[in-house]
Structure formats: structure tokens, C-alpha cells
Design a protein around this nucleic acid. Structure first.
Length: 594
RNA sequence: GAUCUCGUAGCUCAGUUGGAUAGAGCAUCUGCCUUCUAAGCAGACGGUCAGGGGUUCGAAUCCCUUCGGGAUCACCA
């Protein structure tokens, strides 16, 4: 499309000179896609040209249209509505592009590894409780953005930082020690992350009880929170861990292993993976070292009490502490360490993308500034992929109030729902149970992923467990269904003419499809630039709708004209390919039947 | 208090380099399966784009302001 647009642009400039004796400024030549209700393939907005040309919009449009039609081979018609000049391209132009698309090995994909390495961090859970709905949005987003960047030609490293250290895991450890009776995932039959999460909840219950009783004895609440025996015990455990106490470290290892095993199961079902894991327990000391180095270079300064700070007031931010009085690392300190370690591990990395909730926007502003001051110029290209919360009808998810939606449960529910729908339709009756289950899972996950990814990442979104996830309309299964139709057609098509006949006449359905398919590379590019999978989701939906409409209106296998049949099968094949390809970028798989 | 962000149909969401009559899905209602998979297609209904002001040929989009929701501003993570 670019080449023809450039030709039109040149024609407009020439028309300016020849018809009006003026030089149209580049910025005044504006195009937009033609609205559906009008005839045309591209629209020139003539308003900005009326001033320099000293002409009325309608007249100008007519004159330009005529000029362009004479100059540009593939512009075969035009019409003017108000100040809009709609240009019609020839069928030959679109058929030529169709030929281009079908002969491309992977239409839409930039050449692999043609662009520098980017690192995408996502998931990054704490190891004291199971994954929930918020993590699902995080993981799906991060994974999708990584795939989209790959499709744009980048080398991509998918990473996560596992927050395996700190008071939170000590809470679970302590509660397990007190009341666990050596319970293990094997003995309890619980997934490891669920087991550890159970003790985290127990800790919280006990802790609350203690606070209540202390407050009843007359202690102020703030003090009670600090003095509650179980909290003191958990803190003592953290100190013991930091000092390398063997028993504590052993317990910590054991319980973390349980959690990892549980997470692995969940990740597998989610369909996400990582190229490299980073553990906070291995990077937090690195962060401290980097801060000390920076202190020597004068990037940071030390206050009288021994704490270390950075002054970001010249950047419009505040002063920020990076080391505590006692010299220990803080949250931001570890992130400094992790970021630098990653740049050292993968020196060709030009950017790190952090998939983290929007409540941490300030944190990442600070982190990027600090990295820059430490001399890591890549920080300019680093990006906080900030996403909004998933809200429930009753408000936010709060683990303490039991209003979390568990990731495993939700995925299971989705599969069960899709089983209900599928069984009712009975189209899978000749499959065996394992094959059926695979289809249920693929459909359930599509519904879930698409639901979470079709929304602009930065916005908060609403999740209503009762009615949110549907299988009709603008949904993952709808798109899968369109794909399944393409595959059914292709299975039955047998041998057909693989050559695009450049002489056929296109109807509006065929034309719409070609136009949309032709825009796919730009869609991928836009999604990559914005780090926004919802761009891809919209495209996949639009494409499926357009295909369905085409499917309904045009007979394909029964078409008697061989050239037309070939054209339609090409469109079917290409549509199927692009639907699958775009959904693949979202991490959504396609069933071959449903 | 300061900063950021969001507010579009009953509900969930698209639509910002300023462009035509603001678009989908769900819900409600009407048609279409002896014909390539009806998880579909075609259509109807539904809007003071939170309110007000400004910028201009033109504003959901940019600026100002008011209201409302959310977030952030720790030697927490």
C-alpha cells in the first residue's frame, strides 16, 4: 500500500504545481482509510489543501481526483463527499497484493532476529501464595508482548525475577513450623504453592488474633502490629536466613521448591515460559554492591545516619533511599542489581520491558533514572509495561478477604464451561476422551486469554465471574470457530488451482478481506511500538468477522468458475493463516475442529 | 495536599499523529440451518462521548476548569 500511496502523494504535489501553481506542504497531504459506507480504498482529506490551493473543498477534490486517476495506474475511480476524496483501486492492484501475500512464507512477520535483543520480564510472583487472576493478566500480557516483539524481528529474552526471599516467605515457613506437622504436597495432596499459601493464610489469622488480644490489653494498634509474637518470630527467621542458619535455609529451600513445582504446573497450563530465571536471593547483594560502587562515583550520597540516597529532584522526582541505615538492600536496590546483572548477562540487550502493575509507576521512573545515572544508557529505552487492575464486581481482589480468583481454578472452570458448550453441540462426538479434553482446554484458554488481552493494558478492567467470559461474539472461541471453518474448507478442497488469476473481478467481500489481510504487517508493527497486544486482538476479531461474512455470502467449494474458486480458497487459506498467526502472538492456540 | 491515570450505549469494551452520520460484543427483539461447521450470518433497538468553557474549516481526541473513580508520593515489597 505504501508504494501506491507514495504515487498518489507525488500526484497530489504535481497537481498542486500544475493546477494551482503552489507547493503543497507534505503535512497537508493526509490519508485515512475509507469508511465502509463509501466506495473507495483510500481517502485523501482535502481540507488542509484548500487554503494553499485557494479552492473550495468539493471543487478541489474533483480536480485532484481527476488528476490522480490520470497519473496513477491503479487508481481507477474516485468520488468526492464533502471534503473527502475517496479513491478506488483496481482489482488488479489487489490481486497483485494477494499474490504477494500467498507467496510470502510468513505473511506479516519481520525477518527473524533482524532487530536487536529486548528483554521482557513478566510474572515475577512472590513465593508465598498461589497465582491469581492478576497474575494471569500479567503473564498473558508479558508473553504476548514478547511474541509481538519477535514478530517485529527482535531477539527476545523472556525473564522473570522470583521474589523468593523476604518476610513473606518467612511467614509461611513459621506457620508451617508451628502447625504444619511435617505436611508435604505428597502427604496432603495439595499443589505445592497451594500448601505454602495455606500456611500464609494461617499465619495471617494467628497474627490478627494476637494483635486483637494485645489491643484489648491496652496496647496501641501500631505497636501491637510490631510486637505480635508471630511477627517477631517471622522476623527472627528472616534474620536467621540472612545469617545463613542451616535449618532455616533448608526449610526455605524446601518450601520454595514446593512453590516452584506448583508454579510450573500453572505456567504450563497457561502456556507461558521463560528463557531465564532470576532469583532475588541471588541478586539483592549485587544491588548493594552496585550502590556502593555508585556511591564512590558520587552518584549517591550518604546521610549522617549512614543511609544512602540519590537526589532525583533535578529530574522532577524526590530524594530516594537506596540503602538502609544498617546497610541492607531495599526493594529498589535489588531491582538495580537485577537490571545490571541482566545487562551483563546479555550485553546486546537494548531494552528491558517490565510487565508490572501500574501501582509501581513511580518505582520504575526512579529505577530507570538511577540506572541512567549509573551509566546504563539502555535505560532510556527501558519500558514499564504498566497494566491496570482486574477488578471484581465486589471491588478489588484481596487475599485476606478471600476475594481472590485463583488462576488454577479459573482455568479449570473455563475448560469445564467449554466442555458444556461443546457437548451440547455434539460436534466432537467421534473424538476420544483425551482428544476432547484437549479441545476443551484449548477453547477455555482462548476465552480467558482473549478476554484479558483484548483490553488496553493500561486500563483497569472488570471481571465478573458469573457472566464475564462468554463463547459468543467478540471472544476467543468466536475467532477459533472462524479458523476451524477455514480448516474444514481446506480439508475438503482437495486439489485446486494454486495460481492467482489476475483477471478476476472482486466482489465487496473478497475485496474487504484482501484489504484487511494486507494491513496485517502494519498491525504487528503498531502493536510492537505500543507494546499493546489488544491491537492484535482487535485485528484478529475484525479479520474473523470479515471472513465469516465472506463465508456466508460467497460459496467457495461449490463455486463453478475455477478462477473464482481458486481466489476464494486462497482467501480462505490466507485468512486461516493470519487468524492463527495473530492469535499465536497472543499465546492462543487453535483447535482444528470444534 | 501534590503528581499520574481513567470516565464513550443498560453491561463489557473499541475508537487520540484533530476529520465524514461516534463503532463492536453482551442483553432485548426480527429474520436465516434438507445447501461448504448456526460457537455463525443479516437486521432492529439503544449515545447531551461525565459537566462547562476554549483553540479552528472541523474536537470523543488538544488546552483550561469542575465533578466522579483508581493509583502513587516510606530506611514496605
Amino acid at each position: 500500500m505504501n508504494t501506491i500511496i507514495n504515487q498518489i502523494k507525488d500526484a497530489v504535489v504535481a497537481a498542486g504545481k500544475n493546477l494551482f501553481q503552489v507547493e503543497f506542504p507534505e503535512s497537508a497531504i493526509q490519508f485515512q482509510s475509507t469508511r465502509k459506507e463509501f466506495e473507495g480504498d483510500i481517502t485523501l482529506v482535502v481540507f488542509p489543501l484548500t487554503k494553499p490551493a485557494q479552492a473550495k473543498p468539493e471543487d478541489l477534490g474533483l480536480k485532484l481526483g481527476e488528476y490522480i486517476q490520470n497519473e496513477v495506474t491503479h487508481v481507477v475511480g474516485f468520488n468526492v463527499v464533502k471534503g473527502f476524496l475517496n479513491l478506488v483501486f483496481s482489482d488488479a492492484y489487489w490481486l497483485q497484493n494477494l499474490d504477494l501475500m500467498v507467496s510470502a512464507s510468513q505473511w506479516g512477520m519481520a525477518p527473524q532476529n533482524s532487530k536487536p535483543r529486548m528483554m521482557v520480564e513478566y510474572s515475577s510472583p512472590n513465593t508465598n501464595k498461589p497465582l491469581h487472576l492478576g497474575h494471569l493478566r500479567n503473564n498473558f500480557l508479558g508473553y504476548a508482548v514478547a511474541e509481538i516483539l519477535k514478530a517485529n524481528g527482535h531477539q527476545v529474552t523472556k525473564v522473570q525475577i522470583i521474589n523468593d526471599r523476604g518476610i513473606h516467605i518467612c511467614k509461611s515457613m513459621y506457620a508451617w513450623q508451628v502447625s504444619g506437622k511435617n505436611e508435604t504436597p505428597e502427604s496432603s495432596g495439595l499443589k505445592g504453592d497451594k500448601l505454602v499459601g495455606k500456611y500464609y493464610v494461617e499465619f495471617d489469622i494467628q497474627y490478627k488474633k494476637e494483635i486483637k488480644s494485645l489491643v484489648e490489653q491496652g496496647m496501641p494498634e501500631e505497636e501491637a502490629k510490631q510486637q505480635a509474637p508471630s511477627m517477631l518470630a517471622a522476623q527472627e527467621m528472616l534474620r536467621a536466613w540472612e545469617n545463613g542458619d542451616e535449618a532455616v535455609v533448608q526449610l526455605w529451600k524446601t518450601m520454595n521448591e514446593w512453590v516452584y513445582a506448583g508454579f510450573d504446573t500453572t505456567y504450563k497450563r497457561m502456556g507461558v515460559d521463560f528463557d531465564r530465571l532470576y532469583f532475588e536471593s541471588q541478586t539483592y547483594l549485587k544491588g548493594r554492591d552496585e550502590v556502593i560502587k555508585g556511591l564512590e562515583k558520587g552518584v549517591f550520597f550518604k546521610k549522617e545516619d549512614g543511609s544512602v540516597w540519590i537526589d532525583l529532584t533535578d529530574e522532577g522526582l524526590d530524594e530516594k533511599a537506596v540503602l538502609r541505615r544498617d546497610g541492607t538492600a531495599m526493594y529498589v536496590t535489588q531491582d538495580i542489581g537485577t537490571a545490571i546483572l541482566r545487562f551483563e548477562d546479555y550485553p546486546d540487550t537494548v531494552s528491558q520491558i517490565y510487565t508490572v502493575g501500574n501501582e509501581q509507576e513511580y518505582h520504575f521512573k526512579v529505577l530507570f533514572k538511577i540506572l541512567k545515572k549509573l551509566g546504563w544508557t539502555q535505560s532510556d529505552a527501558c519500558y514499564h509495561l504498566s497494566y491496570g487492575m482486574v477488578e471484581l464486581p465486589e471491588g478489588k481482589m484481596k487475599s485476606r478477604e478471600g476475594t481472590v480468583v485463583d488462576a488454577d481454578d479459573l482455568m479449570e472452570t473455563m475448560a469445564a464451561e467449554s466442555k458444556l458448550v461443546a457437548d451440547e453441540q455434539g460436534k466432537l462426538s467421534d473424538l476420544n476422551d483425551a482428544e476432547k479434553t484437549a479441545v476443551y482446554n484449548v477453547i477455555g484458554m482462548a476465552a480467558l486469554k482473549y478476554f484479558l488481552l483484548r483490553v488496553d493494558p493500561k486500563k483497569n478492567m472488570m471481571f465478573n465471574p458469573q457472566e464475564s467470559i462468554d463463547f459468543n461474539g467478540n471472544t476467543g472461541p468466536f475467532i477459533q470457530y472462524g479458523y476451524v471453518r477455514t480448516q474444514a474448507l481446506l480439508r475438503k478442497a482437495e486439489n485446486w488451482n494454486r495460481v492467482v488469476d489476475a483477471g478476476v473481478t472482486l466482489n465487496e467481500y473478497e475485496r474487504n478481506l484482501i484489504q484487511l489481510l494486507y494491513s496485517y504487517p502494519q498491525v504487528i508493527q503498531q502493536a510492537g511500538e505500543k507494546f499493546d497486544p489488544s491491537v492484535i486482538a482487535s485485528f484478529a476479531y475484525e479479520l474473523t468477522k470479515t471472513f465469516n461474512s465472506f463465508y456466508q455470502q460467497c460459496s467457495i467449494l461449490k463455486e463453478e468458475n475455477a478462477s473464482l474458486k481458486s481466489l476464494r480458497l486462497h482467501l480462505t487459506e490466507l485468512s486461516g493463516m493470519c487468524i492463527a498467526s495473530s492469535m499465536r502472538l497472543l499465546g492462543v492456540s487453535m483447535p482444528s475442529r470444534m
